[in-house]
Nucleic acid binder design. Structure first.
Length: 551
RNA sequence: GGCUCAAUGGAGAAGCGGUUAACUCACUGCCCUCUCAAGGCAGCAUUCAUGGGUUCGAAUCCCGUUUGAGCUACCA
């Protein structure tokens, strides 16, 4: 037995597996040509970030359209930052947006034969690989303390050299196995580092599916692969997991680009086939004229829950993310307005290389559009679903009388270009509450704002005249004609042109008369089409409201 | 500081050596209209961060500058 083997056995006495065993246990996937296997690998440190949803969505879509596999792997190796229960929260939020993994971690259970899918459960795999690496001299225990490392950094900074644990500075890499064994037997604490043979003066050539061809400096850092808590670091977990889970394309945020040389060397020294990489642009935010990464701490909209709580159309959020992913999507969308957006195929070529600013205006527009294209039944189901969780006032209105609610939100909905009154379900309650007696009475008690041009007598006259001539069995055309006729007798011109031509004959236009009726009925200067409002309110309620206003 | 990537209107962008520099959102004006929403029309980059070069010809290719972003942990 060599000294390296002794060292490996001392550190991992219970590991009997070999890399070969793992290769057999996790065989290559039998998928059709071009099928993409990718993964979403969040760490359970909080809620789902809008940028993470983007990454997950892109991975999901690619797997879907190529007949591949999209899996969820939980990167729970940072025990300090872990937030209890956030893994499941992440998953439910993804589901809200229709992003459902085909394999992996599902909160209370796992699915798939490449697991476990929580990194904290994969110690056997990591340890097996590391034991083999130590045996072959590719990894070694490092006994340096945090203080040693800080001191090292300081001297490197003074000498203006690259900071880090590498080359001559990698003190523990020079320890021969017998010395390391002695230290361990003395009870010194250690972590495991990777023995890099790279030189940062050399260049490696890599191809990124989105960024294109890149020349990067070779890695020379002896990175930590196993921390003192026994858990692997991201880099090492990435190596083992994506190799043994047979990931074909690693899709991740571009903040990972600079650690690609590490991964490149890791895969090469283990003789594992390097996966393809696609580094996605990061979503940015304008802040005081500067752009920066969308931040969970600073920006509310960075958390996906922002959109859920306000009742945005979830389809619209997905659709917006599609526009960020592929620049030609919007154009496609214009000619496929009523199709499923998943019919559109993503391509890596159409990805933008740099991060886009998060555009709430655009999201609002898309959400408004999506909500307007829902049938009244769909709208109501979704509104209630939202209201149940976030909006008790709205919930109450819907449950009082579902048909009444539907007739309100259906005003000018069933036509080619429907009204776009609501950006999000949060807007609905305020917009429609005047239809309900109790809320109307509340509005009335706060006072109505009529046009000051007209005195109380005139207002009363308009309301009474309108009420007398009102016949809601008429169609819209006739109804409006009746209104024009009756209002003309009170001095309101039937259109602006008439008023312009005969300024002395009229005191206003039909628009002014309508405003009086509108304010009396709704408490507002703008509302949907008065004809439909009146049809929904019915004669008796219109009479009641007018009488109260006149009082 | 070092390394890497990027730069087309307020935002997302098309553009791949010859275009009046598409399109979407936002914005502005007009029209339509009972208000709003919707819709229609028009406007919104004589110029693609900047300076140089290559070329008959450059937003497109090359170099420098500037600006921005990301990384530079026993975090992911």
């Amino acid at each position: 037995m060599t000294d390296y083997e002794k060292l490996a056995n001392l550190i991992f006495p219970d590991i009997n597996l070999t890399i070969d065993d793992l290769e057999k246990r996790y065989p290559k996937r039998d998928l059709k040509e071009g099928a993409i296997v990718d993964r979403f690998a969040p760490s359970p440190t909080g809620f789902l970030h809008s940028g993470s949803l983007f990454t997950a969505l892109v991975g999901y879509k690619f797997a879907l359209q190529t007949g591949g596999v999209f899996m969820l792997r939980l990167e729970d190796t940072d025990t300090k930052r872990e937030i209890e229960g956030s893994g499941e929260k992440l998953l439910t939020e993804m589901k809200e947006f229709g992003v459902v993994p085909m394999e992996g971690y599902f909160g209370t259970y796992e699915e798939g034969s490449y697991g476990p899918y929580c990194q904290s459960d994969r110690a056997l795999i990591y340890n097996t690989v590391i034991k083999d690496m130590i045996r072959r001299g590719l990894a070694y225990p490092c006994f340096c303390s945090h203080e040693d490392l800080d001191a090292l950094r300081k001297t490197q900074e003074e000498k203006k050299e690259n900071p880090g644990y590498y080359g001559e500075y990698a003190k523990c890499s020079h320890l021969i196995p017998s010395e390391a064994i002695k230290k361990i037997e003395n009870g010194e604490s250690y972590i495991i580092r990777f023995r890099s043979t790279g030189n940062h003066l050399n260049k490696i050539h890599v191809h990124d599916l989105i960024k294109g061809d890149l020349d990067l400096s070779e890695n020379d850092q002896h990175i930590v692969i196993l921390k003192s808590d026994g858990l692997p670091t991201y880099h090492f977990a990435h190596l083992c997991d994506d190799h043994f889970m047979r990931t074909t394309i690693v899709m991740r945020g571009e903040e990972w680009l600079s650690s690609l040389p590490i991964h490149y060397e890791l895969f090469n020294t283990l003789g594992f086939e390097l996966p393809k990489y696609a580094h996605l642009p990061v979503i940015m935010k304008q802040d005081n004229g500067k752009r920066r990464k969308l931040s969970k701490r600073l920006d509310q909209e960075a958390a996906v829950s922002y959109f859920l709580e306000r009742g945005y159309s979830r389809d619209a959020i997905v659709e917006y993310l599609f526009t960020l992913a592929n620049s030609n999507f919007e154009e496609w969308r214009l000619s496929h307005m009523n199709d499923n957006i998943y019919d559109f195929d993503f391509s890596f070529e159409k990805f933008n290389v740099d991060g886009a600013l998060f555009d709430l205006d655009k999201i609002n527009d898309i959400s408004k559009e999506r909500l307007s294209r829902l049938s009244k039944e769909e709208f109501t189901v979704k509104a209630l679903e939202y209201a149940n969780k976030y909006d008790h006032n709205l919930k109450d209105l819907i449950e009082r009388d579902r048909d009444y609610f539907m007739s309100i939100i259906n005003i000018e909905r069933e036509k080619e270009n429907p009204r776009k009154d609501y950006v999000k379900f949060e807007d609905v309650f305020d917009f429609i509450k005047f239809f309900y007696k109790d809320y109307y009475d509340e509005i009335l008690s706060n006072g109505l704002e009529f046009n000051e041009k007209f005195n109380k007598g005139k207002i009363k006259e308009v309301l009474l005249t309108h009420l007398c001539s009102l016949d809601l069995t008429q169609d819209e055309q006739t109804w409006f004609q009746t209104m024009k006729d009756t209002m003309e007798s009170l001095g309101f011109a039937p259109n602006k042109k008439e008023l312009r031509d005969n300024p002395n004959k009229y005191i206003g236009t039909i628009g002014d008369a309508s405003e009086i009726i509108r304010v009396a009925l709704t408490g507002r200067k703008s509302s949907p089409n008065l004809y439909y409002v009146e049809k929904i309110l019915t004669n008796s309620e219109i009479r009641r409201r007018f009488e109260n206003v006149i009082k």
